[in-house]
Design a protein around this nucleic acid. Structure first.
Lengths: 207, 207
DNA sequence: GTCTATACTTTGATAGAC
DNA sequence: GTCTATCAAAGTATAGAC
């Protein structure tokens, strides 16, 4: 039995992800949550902005769990990154290109319009970066390079989401995934790299 | 002497980029354009959605020119990519992290809510991909790899914009730029690569 | 093409009874 | 905590005179 407050948060998360923050009305949210309108202001006295901030943090925490869920059972970090992008591509396809990053749309919308919401998105991105960086460090990559890789991987995924949703194709996510995978593999200490692509040696692609 | 129609388009582009599509009112746009409110529906009988579509295409065309402006004078394609990201980082800093991609926010907002607008963003992204891919082909990269690189470069930039605007730091754009530069360099035919980083040979970063 | 005025809807938010 | 009723403001869009 889910609480009213949680249902409102879930509903808000769904709408914000698909339609953005400004494009979603609070009435729409509570209606879909089968919650009384007044409950919104009971649980979130700060109104839409407070709801937005909590939705951002909640969605961010769930995605953080997803990172763990994928990295923990993977045999190595390269496989994990590959699985991460492949899973994202599959979700995109299954949801008709609706469900990508839960906070990217909001992040762009509020970056220059609401400091409280912008800070919430910043905290979430930082948490993802830290989590991924730790995995990379555990794979033997230096602290500095691990953070760079984490930022780079998340950026590649976010940008690929933008292109994939607009083009309605999983191609960008797959390409970005391959590139991110390569980058991680190249950053690993040699003996941890495992099977690699045959390196190019001499022959140009052009005549 | 700028026409009223153009001023409305320019004004709309500014607001949409900073506040998003849903977050911007048409009254706000015409007021900032010093245009009569009725002119909006005179020039854009399709209302806000038609205005949005034309803004997307116009902004997309201007950014396409920017690609040419950066790639044409550059001594080589690796330098061009590097300059591209560095220029983006500088613009971000100068505009207090407001001016990143002119259509990314709209693209995410409308991807699942407006087919006409989604198609407009798709056309723009395709035009950028084609333009970049052609540059890469001219540098001796295979057709297929050139397109992959183009998609990957644009995705990395878009995603870095998301992170940079949220974190209010140019770090993500710089990191993504370095990664994209590396990827382009690695894809070049050997004799065109020029000076490279010293390749890692043997010593692990870990004891 | 521009002006003024306005219709109509939806928005976020509140009051007060229960 | 939930209900009903309602608010003022902002949203998009239109009409008709000039």
């Amino acid at each position: 039995m889910t609480g009213t407050r949680d249902r409102i948060l879930d509903s808000g998360g769904e709408f914000f992800r698909r339609q953005g923050y400004a494009g979603t009305g609070v009435k729409q949210i509570v209606e879909a949550a089968s919650a009384p309108f007044a409950s919104l202001y009971h649980f979130f006295p700060g109104g839409k902005e407070q709801l937005g901030a909590e939705v951002i943090r909640r969605s961010g925490a769930m995605y953080l769990q997803l990172i763990d869920l994928i990295f923990t059972p993977a045999p190595d970090v390269v496989t994990a990154v590959s699985n991460f992008f492949n899973g994202a591509a599959e979700t995109l396809r299954q949801t008709d290109y609706a469900d990508a990053c839960p906070i990217a749309t909001i992040a762009l919308e509020v970056a220059s319009t609401s400091e409280p919401l912008r800070e919430a998105t910043a905290e979430v991105f930082e948490s993802w970066i830290s989590a991924a960086a730790q995995r990379f460090r555990e794979a033997g990559i230096s602290t500095r390079k691990a953070r760079e890789l984490a930022i780079y991987m998340i950026a590649a995924l976010e940008g690929a989401f933008v292109l994939s949703r607009a083009l309605r194709s999983t191609e960008p996510v797959k390409i970005a995934g391959a590139a991110a995978t390569d980058a991680v593999r190249a950053a690993l200490p040699e003996r941890r790299r495992g099977p690699q692509k045959r390196p190019r040696t001499g022959t140009s692609t052009r005549a």
